[in-house]
Simulated assay, not measured.
Amino acid sequence: MTNHPRPGGRTRLLVLADRIDAVVRQIGEWATWLSLGMVLVTFAVVVLRYAFDIGSIALQESVTYMHAVLFMLGIAYTLGRNGHVRVDILYERLSRRGRARVDLIGTLLLLIPVCILIIWLGWAYVAESWRVQEASRETGGLPAVYLLKSLILIMPVLLLAQGLSNAVRNWLFLAGMDEALPSVDGEIGRA
């Protein structure tokens, strides 16, 4: 991506958006490996259960943990790749500038407030889980449920960061910086 000097610090904003995108992309790419982990652990659970008559609550719960981590960390990654499902009535018919306006307004009026609300409502819930060092209710289950519940706060923070990056890109594009938006392939923030 070319980064031409512009007045008013726009290039700094674009650099910040690129950095946010890179961090979210790295976390998302790491999280995708959990899908392989889920398959392997599920296979192990089945083999242990039916071939050796051995059950493991911890292994079964680990699949649930990996599933939660995969989705909670993958949400921002998917937003950054423009991969979320849209109910498209008019969006595809709009010009690129029209779509940038819709995306900017949607981010500012919907995404950011919802992320802030999730953080606000989830804070006490996660804090209480940490306070009591919440563990699995199942005998032999995984001990660190409080770490899993921390995703309730991590997910909206990552989503908020990616949303801000997208908002900056759309704002810069609407202000005349064509290189702020991704190319047609939908990939945002290619460093």
Rank of each mutant, 00 (worst) to 15 (best):
D103R: 04
T64S: 14
G37M: 07
Q133E: 11
R96N: 11
V46D: 00
G55F: 05
I105M: 12
A76T: 05
S62D: 02
W130E: 06
I57R: 11
V114M: 14
S56V: 03
L117V: 13
Y65F: 15
I105L: 15
M66E: 03
A127K: 11
A127N: 13
D103K: 04
L108K: 02
M72E: 06
F52N: 08
M38F: 00
F71S: 02
A124V: 12
N82D: 15
R93V: 07
I89Y: 10
Y77L: 00
G122N: 02
S56E: 02
R93P: 01
A76E: 06
V69A: 13
L110D: 08
G37I: 03
A124I: 12
V102C: 11
P113Q: 08
T78V: 13
I112L: 15
L90E: 12
V39L: 15
A100L: 05
V39C: 12
L108H: 01
Q60N: 11
Q60P: 00
V102S: 10
C115Y: 00
A124M: 09
E134S: 13
S62E: 04
V47P: 03
S62H: 05
I75T: 11
S129G: 08
A135H: 11
Y50G: 01
V132I: 14
I54N: 06
A58V: 06
D103H: 04
M38T: 02
D88R: 05
G122S: 10
